[in-house]
Design a protein around this nucleic acid. Structure first.
Length: 835
RNA sequence: GCUCGGGUGGCGAAACUGGCAGACGCAUGGGACUUAAAAUCCCAAGAGGAGCAAUCCUCAUGUGGGUUCGAUCCCCACCCCGAGCACCA
């Protein structure tokens, strides 16, 4: 302890501070964006700057992406690797409320801390192009994007349900609803319908789905998007209805409209189904409680019960309404509809298991072949008719069914008139066709995806740039008046008044109408955080332009993003919204690509003691202490060596001294390196070239753990030889640079270089030298490895067999009998099969 | 329930997607250096067994079957863990 370490020992704190300063001073990480040699846009998902700072999971993700960016730089690309802060949103607002501070004060503090951590870990960030979504310079253009969509008819306003706490008199986000109650006061949450802004993302469903096939993205992410889009093919089928008493079939076909005076209600209900083949089994109908036809259908006798049910459904919050596996409930309206293919009268019910947002908000119920309908029919004693069964089987007694019958490939239609005997697929087409011919149905494609609601009845976000005028209606804020600044109000917390916080701020709320100049009111909703993050990649290359969101030339040079690495928790929303927005911007002529991220890879999660790190679980690991104790480079190597980037793993600090020992060894080698002049042993040369190749390939595939292992093997080989060859050691330093950038820079300088190691170029390998010409081939007898023989690379089967049979051990197992069969995989394996 | 991952030594993991299972590292044991410890260096090591020995044998990739000369990898059935979605008609 009292010993002073020798001058040349590896001192990470000093080395890292030195190179952080150098990089900043020399602008090493800020490429010339206007004159790149081969542009490479290396993007990682920008963080939300929480008060706790970056945890080990963030560091894992950012380092993983940074290693890749540094590797690309070594390969000769001009790498642009920016970083920013996703600082608007409910997280920040809630935290600010909790600690009783203003988010406008908290966020800059948090950002400063994030910046310190990000620099400390050695990311290759171009700090000249940093951004924060809360900066008016940024959200000015978020608002501008809203206006472009509004102008193009891609944004519209409609009433939509929100969670409403009747005590706090405020809107709650879904995550603030716990077991149907307000997380703050515990009051039961109900639904309210508010006018909100939407983006027409559903117009882009087919395109969003089709493009996925050609994207170089993690398969898991693509699958998640496909499921979220939820395309299904089916049919819309029109049922004619009558209220309480039978009426003549109306000629009216259009869905949902009332064709007759209210005293003789005759109209139709359109349902969506993916199973038109089961139409003969549709024995009742169910409408969502909110369906516009409910009132017209309900008979006087049923009215009290129906109205009570509708009210109860509305009183539920949005979260618990959608929780599955609940006991089915419903009420008979008293009305009947006509099954368009059987002509039979079927009762019309309402139930909250039918959702107004999907399909047409009405279903035909086929209890024999749908679990939900089956449960409902059982509970309310509704008829069950089986229409799919084994070929040749006649009318089967369906009332005895104990569960819904799932379709299997052997089943055909039964009890379905002229369609009997058809396969389900054939019947889908045939029945849809017949209905279409009669004007009572058509084939349609449905998506699960809904339009994107961007309104938030909150404070901490970009105000939606619209002004309401009594004379002119909703008027977009003129572009020259952007940004609509978020006023710095102290009373940003929701209160009992029932109006959103911005509306209370009168100087801000009342403005002259841009069209007529009369007193008008601002929109008081702010936009969704996902809108901020849906276009940030476009802003990075253009942060120094104040008169445009993204410069045309810059965007053409740098976009779309070459490689994007981020968490799979954003597999759906963030990535889908970004794709949608790029399509819109392309269609409007602002950009010339429609897929923003050419290559996307999802990194794994770092967990602690088996569960995701979160403050509530108290298992957040702060990286700062580790970095202080071991150095950023050791910490980076440790994280990357833990396991594959795309898998993640459990954080244990047990092995962190391994990478450190490794760096210490390399440090010594660098100190002792000399021009050896002499020939290196052949095996070492092979190892050298093989390592150049393997590490490059592993880096490209993000298999960092095996790349590091290969470097360790090379070091072990060099040590075993006692080799001091400068050229070899120099190469080692270059290959280490993506993982341990400060360390590599220092070694590089000590090896006599004056420029950054990242301009050194990736060492090229000679394919002929990657493999040795003498190889060891395992010899199996009856599939079990018994021996090995040394042969020349490319030796023939005959030669290898002869060598094997000359081997004493092999002969013992083969015996004197001639081999029954010989399998030879060139250069890999010989298997001798004996009787 | 559905979708997608995953299950390999004491631990983190590897294995060219059918070809020597356990590379690399951690922890461990032994040795060297040291007054001692730390650090460093060298050696050992999947489990079980035979042998004085060098060595040799058997069993092993969640479980049970199958295909194959050969299976961690492919097929069938099942168990467990993780993530996401969840009444989507």
């Amino acid at each position: 302890m009292s010993d002073t370490p020798p001058d040349n020992s590896y001192r990470p704190d000093q080395v890292e501070a030195k190179w952080r300063a150098r990089w900043a001073e020399r602008g090493t990480n800020s490429p010339d964006l206007d004159h790149p040699t081969r542009p490479f846009y290396n993007l990682m998902m920008f963080p939300y700057p929480s008060a706790e700072g970056l945890h080990v999971g963030n560091m894992f993700a950012f380092t993983g992406s940074d290693v890749y960016g540094r590797f690309k730089r070594l390969q000769g690309y001009t790498v642009f690797e920016p970083m920013g802060y996703d600082a608007f949103g409910i997280h920040s607002e809630n935290y600010a409320l909790k600690v009783g501070k203003h988010p406008a004060q908290l966020i800059p503090e948090n950002i400063a801390n994030f910046r310190r951590q990000l620099e400390r870990v050695g990311g290759m960030f171009d700090w000249r192009h940093v951004l924060s979504t809360t900066d008016p310079e940024y959200y000015k253009w978020t608002q501008w994007i809203f206006l472009q969509l509004l102008k193009a008819g891609k944004a519209y306003k409609k009433k939509a349900a929100v969670n409403w706490c009747p005590l706090d008199k405020t809107v709650l986000a879904n995550e603030q609803v716990i077991d149907g109650r307000c997380e703050r006061c515990g009051t039961a949450v109900e639904q309210r319908f508010l006018e909100q802004w939407f983006f027409r993302i559903t117009e882009y469903c087919e395109r969003l789905l089709a493009n996925l096939d050609n994207l170089d993205w993690s398969e898991t992410t693509k699958t998640a998007q496909r499921n979220w889009l939820g395309r299904s093919e089916g049919a819309e089928i029109v049922f004619e209805v009558m209220g309480g008493q039978a009426v003549r079939r109306s000629e009216e076909v259009a869905g949902g409209s009332i064709a007759q005076p209210p005293n003789r209600p005759a109209a139709s209900i359109t349902v969506f189904t993916t199973r038109p083949d089961t139409l003969f089994g549709a024995t009742f109908m169910v409408l969502a409680p909110e369906h516009p036809m409910v009132a017209a259908l309900t008979t006087a006798a049923q009215k009290p019960e129906v109205e009570a049910y509708v009210r109860a459904a509305a009183a539920q919050d949005l979260v618990s309404r959608k929780v599955g596996e609940r006991e089915k409930t419903g009420v008979f309206t008293g009305g009947y509809a006509t099954n368009p293919i059987t002509g039979k009268q079927v009762p019309v019910w309402i139930a909250d298991y039918v959702l107004m947002e999907y399909g047409t908000g009405a279903i035909m119920a086929v209890p024999a072949h749908d679990e939900r309908d089956f449960a409902f029919a059982r509970k309310y004693a509704l008829p069950i008719v089986r229409v799919l069964g084994p070929a040749g089987e006649g009318r089967s007694d369906s009332s005895a069914l104990t569960e819904a019958i799932a379709e299997t490939s052997e089943m055909v239609l039964v009890s379905s008139g002229r369609f009997d005997g058809m396969t389900a697929d054939a019947a889908k087409r045939a029945i849809t066709q017949q209905l279409a011919g009669e004007g009572r149905g058509k084939a349609v494609v449905q998506f699960r995806l809904h339009d994107w609601c961007i309104s938030r009845q909150r404070y901490w976000g970009p105000p939606i740039p619209v002004i309401y005028c009594d004379g002119c209606g909703a008027v977009p804020v003129p572009e020259k008046d952007l940004p609509v600044l978020l006023p710095a109000i102290e009373d940003f917390r929701p209160d009992d008044s029932g109006i959103s916080p911005l509306a209370r701020h009168e100087e801000w709320y009342y403005v002259p109408c841009p069209t007529c100049g009369k007193r008008a009111r601002r929109e008081t909703d702010v936009s969704d955080t996902f809108l901020d993050s849906a276009w940030y990649y476009l802003r990075y290359p253009s942060t120094e332009f104040h008169d445009r969101p993204f410069d045309k030339a810059r965007t053409r040079t740098w976009c779309p993003v070459t490689t994007y690495i981020g968490g799979n928790e954003h597999a759906v929303l963030h990535l889908l919204y970004s794709r949608f927005l790029a399509m819109v911007l392309k269609d409007l002529g602002h950009i010339d690509f429609e897929e923003p991220f050419t290559r996307f890879r999802a990194h794994g999660l770092i967990v602690k003691d088996g569960s995701k790190m979160s403050k509530s679980k108290g298992n957040v690991v702060v990286p700062d202490e580790y970095i202080a104790q071991w150095g950023a480079d050791t910490f980076r190597m440790y994280l990357m060596f833990l396991g594959p980037l795309q898998v993640g793993g459990d954080f244990r600090d047990a092995g962190i001294n391994g990478p450190r020992r490794f760096l210490d060894r390399v440090w010594l080698m660098v100190a002792e390196a000399e021009d050896s002049g002499g020939e290196l042993r052949k095996e070492l040369v092979t190892r050298w070239h093989a390592t150049r190749k393997k590490v490059a390939e592993d880096l490209e595939g993000l298999h960092y753990n095996t790349a590091i292992a290969a470097l360790m093997e090379l070091v072990n080989a060099i040590k075993e030889e006692g080799c001091r060859d400068r050229a070899l050691i120099q190469d080692l330093v270059v290959m280490l640079a993506p993982f341990a950038p400060h360390f590599a820079e220092e070694c590089w300088e000590r090896l006599g270089h004056t420029t950054t190691v990242f301009d050194a170029g990736w060492p090229a390998w000679d394919e002929a030298l990657v493999v040795s010409d003498e190889i060891e081939v395992p010899v199996q007898v009856n599939g079990k490895t018994r021996s090995r023989v040394m042969v020349a690379r490319g030796a023939t089967e005959k030669a290898v067999l002869a060598a094997a049979l000359a081997d004493e051990i092999t002969r013992r197992f083969v015996g004197d009998k001639p081999p029954k069969k010989v399998i030879y995989v060139p250069n890999r394996l010989l298997n001798i099969v004996v009787g």
